[in-house]
Design a protein around this nucleic acid. Structure first.
Lengths: 242, 242
DNA sequence: TCAAAAGTGTTTGAATTACACCCATGA
DNA sequence: TCATGGGTGTAATTCAAACACTTTTGA
């Protein structure tokens, strides 16, 4: 047993974590988690959370990439995500001044931002930024290539939300249709017709009614996403769409 | 200037290269390029082409990931691709018996398979396999996780071909509509209505007529894909769709 | 009884599908 | 003149978009 004899790059995982901020007026906003870097490079600047993957050539060979991303999120910002998927890998030479670093980037959705934003390990702070402001901030300081990464993640999220039911990773387990619609509108950055939205969602038969909830006016019915049923329908060739 | 002090994985790039085989009867078939490995692990078995990325912590830090993938294809199989895009990164522990190896996988399309399949460097042979047979072969021998990779690439190609004009990376620069349709049918594995297909493609106004060609019957008009016009239309919010 | 948000149906136009016939060409 | 593949048009249906009123509830 021997390992390959080639120069090796450093390997990191970074995460673009999306959350929803529900304003007191009920208007939702798409947000992104940034951490303030404790160390160089880019010390003191805001960046995407991430860190090194624990690897080895012996024994169990270290941790899985996705586990590494989750671990870093927990360490740096104290959060647990509800949806997690690989975005892409960024490895352009010179993206890190100190050596060749290749970063595998994940994007993640969190339902509740309750216990989030306690800083830890490499971060002196962790906080939520409105998506567009985060993008501006990363561009302003040219923090690695994190601006490009965030731009790609936003594009992917907006595309994906329309043909896969990942939106449910951004709302509480129980939600009303209006709430769900607000989240869609925050992600897509455009208004949706309430009646058509309702018709569409209910017609797909993926929502299970679970109760009702007080609102400013009439009580709203609440639902959960019925993943069992979704998986079954997908098996029959069903395709989710907005 | 110093580099990060963490254990590092080996880094490879692999490629899933798709091509079209036009049978003498005009029926097209989707194919995948496999190489026969010269060395362990999996010596003598068919696998996806790929190899190590040249990296360094000093100077220019080595080659870009995409360039590495292209270089390996040229070295191992003597081919130049017409479309190249990142698929995903595979880095599960134990996927390579000799140490932690993380592989960034690209998928590529070639228009013409003319000068392809001369073997080189790590490959004792390089040849084209019908997509489904290639998948079976990779599954049979459990060659790394290449079966999973190919399955993902196939899924991605089939999805992508419907909403981005990448199909033109699989046909000659000049093609007839029937030819284009045959390629779509090979990729999607289902028949398309000839009249609706024609209407749809011509209506998008992306094909530039360039001449005509002899066939078994009446002459067929030939076209090229007008990328200039496509880019312009995309700028105006146009969305390609099958 | 008023404001605020939930809930419901219908009409219209656009897009997609299904489908059948004529045309040019070379053998 | 026949077989082969290229080329075109239309009707039927389905899907998406636009749109307005009624209901419940708490203040």
């Amino acid at each position: 047993m021997f390992s390959y004899r080639y120069p090796r790059p450093s390997l990191t995982v970074d995460s673009v974590v999306f959350g929803i901020d529900e304003g007191s007026d009920g208007v939702c906003q798409l947000q992104v988690l940034l951490i303030k870097r404790k160390d160089d490079p880019h010390k003191g600047h805001w960046a995407l959370p991430g860190g090194f993957v624990q690897v080895s050539d012996d024994g169990d060979q270290g941790e899985d990439l996705e586990d590494a991303a989750k671990r870093e999120l927990l360490e740096e910002a104290g959060i647990k995500v509800d949806y997690h998927e690989q975005l892409a890998t960024f490895g352009r030479p010179k993206r890190d001044p100190r050596g060749r670093v290749v970063s595998i980037v994940y994007y993640a959705l969190v339902r509740s931002k309750q216990h989030v934003a306690k800083a830890g390990s490499d971060a002196s702070r962790a906080s939520w930024w409105p998506a567009s402001e985060a993008l501006r901030e990363l561009r302003r300081h040219k923090t690695f290539d994190h601006d490009e990464i965030l731009a790609m993640a936003l594009k992917r999220l907006r595309a994906k939300v329309r043909y896969e039911p990942i939106i449910f990773g951004l709302v509480p387990r129980e939600f009303s249709l209006s709430e769900l619609q607000s989240v869609y509108e925050a992600v897509l950055e455009r208004p949706l017709d309430r009646r058509n939205f309702r018709k569409r969602l209910l017609a797909m038969d993926l929502l299970e009614p679970v109760g009702e909830r007080e609102t400013g006016g009439r009580k709203a019915a609440t639902y959960t996403f019925d993943r069992k049923n979704y998986d079954m329908q997908v098996g029959r060739g069903f395709q989710f769409a907005l």
